[in-house]
Design a protein around this nucleic acid. Sequence first.
DNA 1: CTGCTCGTACGATAGCCATCGTAGTACGGC
DNA 2: GCCGTACTACGATGGCTATCGTACGAGCAG
Lengths: 117, 117
Amino acid sequence: MTTAVPSARVLAHPAREEIRLEGVLHALSDPLRMLIVRELAAGAEAGLTCSHFDLPVTKSTSTHHFRVLREAGVIQQNYRGTAKLNALRRDDLDALFPGLLDSVLAAAARQAERLGG
Amino acid sequence: MTTAVPSARVLAHPAREEIRLEGVLHALSDPLRMLIVRELAAGAEAGLTCSHFDLPVTKSTSTHHFRVLREAGVIQQNYRGTAKLNALRRDDLDALFPGLLDSVLAAAARQAERLGG
DNA sequence: CTGCTCGTACGATAGCCATCGTAGTACGGC
DNA sequence: GCCGTACTACGATGGCTATCGTACGAGCAG
């Protein structure tokens, strides 16, 4: 084998051409998911584990939200041992919708500053 | 009175500060509503009537979608006789989320070109 | 005033979705 | 091999939402 399988389990991601704007906007229209995306954008090139996020929901619900983001093509997920690394698909999103992600992130930051103090 | 009531019926709109990013993104995550917004952006400074749009749904459903857009703060609606004029709230959106609307519209146009031929 | 057109309101329905709890699987350390 | 940790799968549930049909209200043309 070429790489002897990185870490066995692989998750299904949509190809770049399959990413739909409606799906991305819908994925980002949930406050919890927007929070995840903002943290990923701020923090991590390499990716953050699911458990890094301190979300006010159960793990089941977390899994659900991460799955929505992945299936919409917003994030990429890879197993790393027992953990799972999440990273923004910035390249794909920028290629498909130039400037969109940055505008949305800026808008979210602006609103957070305006409302959250 | 100052203006003697423009045309009687007035619709409730959220104030600029009440517009929430999640709401805007959710409103735009429906293909039908995105289509409406795109036509409004392309065509009309003054506004377009509801009946101008040739949507593949009943009038009830149209009313519903226009209402969602209005309550999210994306469009402004004003009665003009029996018709109702719809216009984008570009000023408010640009003030709150600079560049967001243009990015989204560009993304939608790009996807339409990519998929619709 | 009588109709006509444009849009609304209301009720019904079916589908999606955010949330939870419980039970289970994969991986790494001992 | 066994256990703990990290995440998943599945089923249930309550709420939202897109859709429709029918009945209604508001303005305009006669």
